[in-house]
Amino acid sequence: MSVPFVESVLLGAILSGMPVLYAALGEVIVERAGVVNLGLEGVMLMGAVTSFASTVRTGSAALGVLAGATAGGLFNLILALLVVTRQANQLASGLALMFFGAGVSALLGAPYIGSRIAGLNPLQIPGLAHLPYLGPLFRSDILAYLAIPAAALVWWGLFRTRWGLSLRAVGENPAAAYAAGYSPPAIQYQALFLAGLFGGIAGADLSIGIVKTWAEWMTAGRGFIAVALVIFSRWHPLRIVWGAVLFGGAVALQLQFQARGAPVSPFLLDTLPYLLSLGVLLVWAGGRRHAAPASLGRVFEGTK
């Protein structure tokens, strides 16, 4: 009956890693465009509540994911308005966005608490679902299957398209990008909307994929972990996948250890994702400014 340790940890890693993976994929896009969104937590909450409510209303999980993504994208435009149009401080604006998302999502979600939905269900891939060790990879829901393609898509978009080039140019040096004929504000708006879509999907994965319920503050800090993951990945979408697996693995391992009665402090294990991120930055400290987009955190002053 019982599932082998490795498979169980893998399954747990997928479960706990997926929402932060999607959120971090969104965050890497905006950070590459020179914006930090500390309000990811609020974006995820908006995605989670909207997708749950729409799934309750329509009965369709697909529509739920769509609604969650849209809500996340639109919600991020508030941040765009603040930090791009009004050139407000990014970190403070992000934190304000988090408070706003927490409040609004709690109001919207209250009527739906206790509702039952089918949500996103696991799709078994015949022949692969029962492979030893790797089986759990092929018993996941659609969002888990799409995670690696999504990471590849973000990578392709950022590093292999003209749009990605212009986006990174804006993140590195907005004045030069402007001189080269790009419109930094327009690109940052696009980046924030796209990132919001990913943040919304992350919330949807949590509410209608993993737990199939809505609760206030159900993200429980995952938005901040996603920001840490982007740093850990040194602003590279494909490395985010490893970071998410590592983070999810740490959570899963911690719970597994407990369930097996191993005497490991869950609190100390929980510090791992943060210390690892810091450790990676320290190790790469000699490198080219940790590959961080140069203008990150700076507000583009305009070159008119």
Binding site: V211, M218, A252
Partner: peptide, 8 residues
């Protein structure tokens, strides 16, 4: 309260 962790 952390439904995600409870599920895992």
């Amino acid at each position: 309260l952390d439904p995600g962790k409870e599920a895992t």
